[in-house]
């Protein structure tokens, strides 16, 4: 593995980059994306691309050319983050991290799937877990825990309400809640505009 990908970067391009999406990558230190030569090793290594229309190379290309249609393309949510593209990229671009960042930008712009909004807002923010064992619906899972001689709730945020508050404080501080509410408002506004 080459430990020095910076040598591939064309500093002048880096400085002059002026499209909104790729600027955001540069801002968070992911400027390595500019070293992409569009070889397609990522697409060739992608288990999702074998069965869907998701093309990693094309997604990176769209970022670089500032094609914002990529933000609302559901295909960017079809990556399973297996990291083959990341490992095999001949330019040492951390491709999977780029896809994650692209998704962050998409959410900022209000593009989040309903399932994901629900998972983030109604489960993770409210319970501190991504998969919870509290509430009437999850009674069977608590009973299952007990059948293996475990406490009916695990010794996590589920058992320590003050710990959950800590997590929620942190999430509010870094504006996770605002981000999700903003995305939800944008979705609702767009729906109205389309009517």
């Amino acid at each position: 593995m080459n430990e020095n990908p910076e040598k591939y970067l064309k500093k002048d391009i880096c400085k002059n980059i002026n499209n909104k999406i790729s600027k955001k990558f540069v801002e968070v230190g992911l400027e390595k994306i500019l070293a992409c030569i569009n070889c397609g090793t990522c697409t060739g290594s992608c288990p999702s691309g074998r069965r869907t229309a998701f093309r990693t190379r094309l997604a990176i290309r769209k970022i670089l050319t500032g094609d914002e249609s990529i933000l609302k393309d559901i295909d960017i949510w079809l990556c399973s983050t297996c990291y083959y593209c990341y490992e095999r990229c001949p330019r040492d671009i951390p491709v999977t991290d780029m896809i994650i960042k692209l998704r962050n930008i998409a959410v900022e712009e209000g593009y989040i799937l309903d399932n994901h909004f629900n998972l983030a807002y109604n489960i993770f923010f409210k319970t501190g877990h991504a998969i919870s064992a509290i509430g009437e619906d999850n009674k069977k899972w608590r009973a299952l825990r007990k059948s293996y001689k475990l406490t009916s709730l695990p010794p996590t945020v589920h058992s320590y309400p003050e710990a959950l508050k800590e997590c929620q404080t942190l999430m509010k501080q870094v504006k996770f809640q605002d981000l999700l509410e903003g995305a939800k408002n944008k979705i609702e506004r767009d729906l109205k505009n389309n009517e």
Binding site: I100, H116, G128, T156, V157, Y160, C167, L170, F176
Partner: peptide, 28 residues
Amino acid sequence: DLPGASCCPAPGVFRSFHIPTWYVIAAR
């Protein structure tokens, strides 16, 4: 046990929504 631990948070979902949240909750 790690009393009061939360979701890691999941690297596929929550990291995809907001990287800063992923860092602080994991650090906690």
